[in-house]
Protein backbone atom coordinates (compact mmCIF):
# COMPACT_ATOMS: atom_id res chain seq x y z
CA UNK A 1 0.00 0.00 0.00
CA UNK A 2 2.32 2.73 -1.17
CA UNK A 3 1.95 6.45 -0.96
CA UNK A 4 3.54 8.47 -3.72
CA UNK A 5 4.34 11.82 -2.13
CA UNK A 6 5.96 13.24 0.97
CA UNK A 7 3.78 15.03 3.50
CA UNK A 8 3.18 18.72 2.63
CA UNK A 9 4.40 18.25 -0.93
CA UNK A 10 2.76 20.25 -3.73
CA UNK A 11 0.35 18.23 -5.87
CA UNK A 12 -1.80 19.06 -8.91
CA UNK A 13 -5.21 17.67 -9.93
CA UNK A 14 -4.95 14.09 -11.12
CA UNK A 15 -1.81 13.23 -9.16
CA UNK A 16 -1.91 9.70 -7.78
CA UNK A 17 -1.51 10.14 -4.02
CA UNK A 18 -1.88 6.64 -2.62
CA UNK A 19 -2.84 3.15 -3.61
CA UNK A 20 -4.52 0.55 -1.50
CA UNK A 21 -6.49 0.67 1.71
CA UNK A 22 -6.72 4.45 2.11
CA UNK A 23 -9.61 6.80 2.77
CA UNK A 24 -10.06 9.78 0.47
CA UNK A 25 -10.22 13.00 2.52
CA UNK A 26 -10.73 16.58 1.43
CA UNK A 27 -9.93 17.52 -2.15
CA UNK A 28 -9.22 13.95 -3.19
CA UNK A 29 -11.23 11.18 -4.78
CA UNK A 30 -10.96 7.44 -4.83
CA UNK A 31 -11.33 5.26 -7.86
CA UNK A 32 -10.94 1.53 -7.39
CA UNK A 33 -8.19 1.50 -4.80
CA UNK A 34 -6.34 4.58 -5.97
CA UNK A 35 -6.60 8.02 -4.38
CA UNK A 36 -6.09 11.07 -6.63
CA UNK A 37 -5.92 14.81 -5.93
CA UNK A 38 -8.69 17.06 -7.27
CA UNK A 39 -7.13 20.43 -6.51
CA UNK A 40 -3.73 22.06 -6.43
CA UNK A 41 -2.48 21.98 -2.86
CA UNK A 42 -0.34 20.30 -0.25
CA UNK A 43 -0.86 16.59 0.53
CA UNK A 44 -1.44 15.33 4.01
CA UNK A 45 -1.29 11.70 5.06
CA UNK A 46 -2.94 10.96 8.37
CA UNK A 47 -3.06 7.30 9.27
CA UNK A 48 -5.27 5.90 6.52
CA UNK A 49 -6.70 9.24 5.45
CA UNK A 50 -5.27 11.11 2.48
CA UNK A 51 -6.24 14.73 2.00
CA UNK A 52 -5.07 17.83 0.17
CA UNK A 53 -4.95 21.31 1.70
CA UNK A 54 -6.10 23.36 -1.27
CA UNK A 55 -4.19 26.47 -2.29
CA UNK A 56 -7.06 27.68 -4.43
CA UNK A 57 -10.69 27.08 -3.54
CA UNK A 58 -13.95 28.96 -3.11
CA UNK A 59 -16.25 29.11 -0.12
CA UNK A 60 -18.95 26.44 0.13
CA UNK A 61 -21.53 27.25 2.83
CA UNK A 62 -21.79 25.05 5.91
CA UNK A 63 -24.51 25.19 8.53
CA UNK A 64 -23.22 26.95 11.63
CA UNK A 65 -20.56 29.02 9.87
CA UNK A 66 -20.28 32.72 10.62
CA UNK A 67 -20.05 34.71 7.41
CA UNK A 68 -19.74 38.35 6.43
CA UNK A 69 -21.73 39.28 3.35
CA UNK A 70 -22.88 42.22 1.27
CA UNK A 71 -26.56 42.90 0.62
CA UNK A 72 -27.09 42.81 -3.14
CA UNK A 73 -30.86 42.88 -3.38
CA UNK A 74 -33.81 43.96 -1.25
CA UNK A 75 -36.90 41.86 -1.85
CA UNK A 76 -40.46 41.89 -0.51
CA UNK A 77 -39.81 39.81 2.56
CA UNK A 78 -36.04 39.71 2.88
CA UNK A 79 -32.61 40.38 1.47
CA UNK A 80 -30.27 38.60 -0.88
CA UNK A 81 -26.72 38.55 0.44
CA UNK A 82 -23.50 37.88 -1.46
CA UNK A 83 -21.37 35.71 0.81
CA UNK A 84 -18.40 35.29 -1.53
CA UNK A 85 -19.57 31.85 -2.61
CA UNK A 86 -21.16 30.30 -5.73
CA UNK A 87 -24.49 30.53 -3.95
CA UNK A 88 -26.30 33.71 -2.86
CA UNK A 89 -27.67 33.65 0.68
CA UNK A 90 -31.13 34.69 1.84
CA UNK A 91 -31.87 36.69 4.96
CA UNK A 92 -35.52 36.82 6.00
CA UNK A 93 -37.04 40.09 7.16
CA UNK A 94 -38.86 38.39 10.05
CA UNK A 95 -35.50 37.19 11.33
CA UNK A 96 -33.97 40.67 11.43
CA UNK A 97 -36.98 42.58 12.71
CA UNK A 98 -37.75 39.97 15.41
CA UNK A 99 -41.38 40.97 15.38
CA UNK A 100 -44.25 40.21 13.01
CA UNK A 101 -43.35 41.71 9.71
CA UNK A 102 -45.91 43.55 7.58
CA UNK A 103 -44.84 44.35 4.04
CA UNK A 104 -47.28 47.27 3.90
CA UNK A 105 -45.83 48.99 6.94
CA UNK A 106 -42.14 48.23 7.09
CA UNK A 107 -39.69 49.49 4.51
CA UNK A 108 -36.90 46.95 4.39
CA UNK A 109 -34.38 49.42 2.98
CA UNK A 110 -34.52 51.31 6.27
CA UNK A 111 -33.12 48.27 8.05
CA UNK A 112 -30.63 47.03 5.46
CA UNK A 113 -29.97 48.48 2.04
CA UNK A 114 -28.01 47.33 -0.98
CA UNK A 115 -24.30 47.56 -0.21
CA UNK A 116 -24.65 47.14 3.54
CA UNK A 117 -22.43 44.55 5.20
CA UNK A 118 -23.83 42.03 7.64
CA UNK A 119 -22.35 39.47 9.98
CA UNK A 120 -24.62 36.43 9.99
CA UNK A 121 -24.77 32.75 10.72
CA UNK A 122 -25.80 30.10 8.22
CA UNK A 123 -28.84 28.28 9.59
CA UNK A 124 -29.68 26.02 6.70
CA UNK A 125 -28.13 24.93 3.44
CA UNK A 126 -28.19 21.91 1.19
CA UNK A 127 -27.66 21.03 -2.43
CA UNK A 128 -31.18 22.01 -3.42
CA UNK A 129 -31.59 25.28 -1.54
CA UNK A 130 -29.53 28.40 -1.25
CA UNK A 131 -28.11 29.08 2.21
CA UNK A 132 -30.31 30.88 4.70
CA UNK A 133 -28.86 33.36 7.15
CA UNK A 134 -29.81 34.43 10.64
CA UNK A 135 -28.71 37.40 12.74
CA UNK A 136 -30.54 36.30 15.87
CA UNK A 137 -27.51 36.04 18.09
CA UNK A 138 -25.41 38.56 19.95
CA UNK A 139 -22.63 39.98 17.80
CA UNK A 140 -24.45 39.41 14.53
CA UNK A 141 -26.16 42.01 12.36
CA UNK A 142 -25.36 45.07 10.32
CA UNK A 143 -21.79 46.30 10.35
CA UNK A 144 -21.57 49.98 11.21
CA UNK A 145 -17.84 50.53 11.60
CA UNK A 146 -14.47 48.87 11.17
CA UNK A 147 -12.31 47.60 8.33
CA UNK A 148 -12.81 44.65 6.03
CA UNK A 149 -10.01 42.32 4.92
CA UNK A 150 -10.58 39.63 2.32
CA UNK A 151 -8.45 36.49 2.26
CA UNK A 152 -8.75 33.16 0.44
CA UNK A 153 -11.38 31.13 2.35
CA UNK A 154 -8.93 28.21 2.69
CA UNK A 155 -6.60 30.43 4.73
CA UNK A 156 -9.14 31.14 7.50
CA UNK A 157 -8.04 28.14 9.64
CA UNK A 158 -4.49 29.51 9.53
CA UNK A 159 -5.64 32.95 10.68
CA UNK A 160 -7.36 31.25 13.62
CA UNK A 161 -4.29 29.18 14.40
CA UNK A 162 -4.02 26.14 16.66
CA UNK A 163 -6.85 26.43 19.20
CA UNK A 164 -7.18 30.08 18.24
CA UNK A 165 -3.60 30.91 19.18
CA UNK A 166 -3.00 33.20 16.21
CA UNK A 167 -6.21 35.18 16.36
CA UNK A 168 -6.16 35.65 20.13
CA UNK A 169 -2.57 36.89 19.88
CA UNK A 170 -3.52 39.48 17.24
CA UNK A 171 -6.53 40.55 19.26
CA UNK A 172 -4.40 41.00 22.33
CA UNK A 173 -1.54 42.80 20.64
CA UNK A 174 -3.61 45.22 18.57
CA UNK A 175 -6.51 45.59 21.02
CA UNK A 176 -8.90 45.18 18.11
CA UNK A 177 -12.13 43.27 17.98
CA UNK A 178 -11.92 40.80 15.10
CA UNK A 179 -14.73 38.78 13.53
CA UNK A 180 -13.69 36.03 11.14
CA UNK A 181 -16.14 35.06 8.44
CA UNK A 182 -15.62 31.49 7.29
CA UNK A 183 -16.14 32.81 3.77
CA UNK A 184 -12.81 34.63 3.86
CA UNK A 185 -14.06 38.05 4.93
CA UNK A 186 -12.65 39.47 8.14
CA UNK A 187 -14.00 42.44 10.09
CA UNK A 188 -11.65 44.43 12.30
CA UNK A 189 -12.88 47.09 14.71
CA UNK A 190 -10.40 48.89 16.91
CA UNK A 191 -10.07 51.97 19.06
CA UNK A 192 -8.13 53.82 16.38
CA UNK A 193 -7.41 53.48 12.70
CA UNK A 194 -3.75 52.75 13.52
CA UNK A 195 -4.74 49.69 15.54
CA UNK A 196 -6.98 48.48 12.76
CA UNK A 197 -4.27 48.94 10.17
CA UNK A 198 -1.86 46.99 12.31
CA UNK A 199 -4.26 44.04 12.48
CA UNK A 200 -4.91 44.26 8.74
CA UNK A 201 -1.21 44.16 7.99
CA UNK A 202 -0.79 41.13 10.24
CA UNK A 203 -3.58 39.26 8.47
CA UNK A 204 -2.16 40.03 5.04
CA UNK A 205 1.17 38.74 6.25
CA UNK A 206 -0.47 35.52 7.44
CA UNK A 207 -2.12 35.04 4.08
CA UNK A 208 1.18 35.42 2.25
CA UNK A 209 3.14 33.11 4.54
CA UNK A 210 0.39 30.76 5.68
CA UNK A 211 2.43 27.67 4.86
CA UNK A 212 5.52 28.48 6.92
CA UNK A 213 6.23 27.23 10.41
CA UNK A 214 6.57 29.36 13.54
CA UNK A 215 4.36 32.00 12.00
CA UNK A 216 2.55 33.01 15.21
CA UNK A 217 5.79 34.06 16.87
CA UNK A 218 6.96 35.98 13.84
CA UNK A 219 3.65 37.82 13.47
CA UNK A 220 3.74 38.66 17.17
CA UNK A 221 7.23 40.12 16.81
CA UNK A 222 6.19 42.02 13.69
CA UNK A 223 3.26 43.66 15.47
CA UNK A 224 5.43 44.62 18.43
CA UNK A 225 8.02 46.14 16.13
CA UNK A 226 5.41 48.13 14.21
CA UNK A 227 3.95 49.34 17.49
CA UNK A 228 7.35 50.63 18.59
CA UNK A 229 7.69 52.51 15.32
CA UNK A 230 4.29 54.08 15.73
CA UNK A 231 5.18 55.64 19.04
Amino acid sequence: MPTFFERRQLVTPGDLLAEGDYVAGENTYKEDSRVYATRIGLVDYEDKKVSVVALRAFYIPRVGDTVIGTVVEVGFSGWTVDINSPYLALLKASDVLSRPFKPQKNDLTEVLDVGDLVVAKIVSYDRTHNPQLSVNEPGLGKITRGQIVRVTPTKIPRVIGKKGSMISMIKQETECHIILGHNGVILITGKSIEDEELAMMAIHKIEEESHTTGLTDRISQLIKKEKEKGR
Binding site: R39, A54, L55
Partner: peptide, 11 residues
Protein backbone atom coordinates in the same frame (compact mmCIF):
# COMPACT_ATOMS: atom_id res chain seq x y z
CA UNK B 1 -9.89 25.52 -14.51
CA UNK B 2 -7.32 24.01 -12.17
CA UNK B 3 -6.03 27.50 -11.37
CA UNK B 4 -9.57 28.58 -10.47
CA UNK B 5 -9.65 25.88 -7.80
CA UNK B 6 -12.30 23.80 -9.49
CA UNK B 7 -12.12 20.16 -8.40
CA UNK B 8 -10.94 17.99 -11.29
CA UNK B 9 -10.25 14.31 -11.86
CA UNK B 10 -7.18 15.12 -13.92
CA UNK B 11 -5.79 17.80 -16.17
Amino acid sequence: LADAGIPMRDL
